[in-house]
Amino acid sequence: MATTTRDDIEAMIARTAQQDRDAFLALYDATSAKLFGVCLRVLDSRPDAEEVLQEVFVKVWRNAGRYSANGLSPMTWLITIARNTAIDRLRARKVVHEDADAVGGLEDKAPGPEAQAIAASQAREIARCLDELDDDRAAAVRGAYLDGQSYQDLSDRFAVPLNTMRTWLRRSLIKLRECLGG
């Protein structure tokens, strides 16, 4: 990934849109580890994450022609597809067996040393602005984005009423927006 630039990924997506198989596989090679990480983080299950990753790249193959018009950076587009597909799977799984163990898991989802090193080297605006929030409120935003936790999951995890959690999140979004200058 370090040697693959944004332009490289955009070019691969553009060629994938022309049904270029080699470009598609190059795109897979350049981005699959990151997207697999995103899926694993949400799903916390290798077999599920493997199925979802395959589904993600089928979507990429079919929809690459739509990329240029959507205004997102290429990695954001890919991460959004991966995350949404993983969360859809997560929610479907929960409907099948409402599993209390699936909620929470704060400790075992903490980033490992490698991830922390990456985070430190790529400290970005969003991280700075999250740091300005109270710790548990920032953790709730991260839980929603990175772990795909719902309002119900978050209210269970932080032991606050559902409406309180909604208020936390919405206030956090307003503060983030102010901090990010949006």
């Binding site: 990695m75 991830a115 991280a127």
Partner: peptide
């Protein structure tokens, strides 16, 4: 999406 920086590739 910047938060995904903290997710380790696997």
């Amino acid at each position: 999406a910047q938060l995904a920086d903290t997710v380790a590739p696997v």
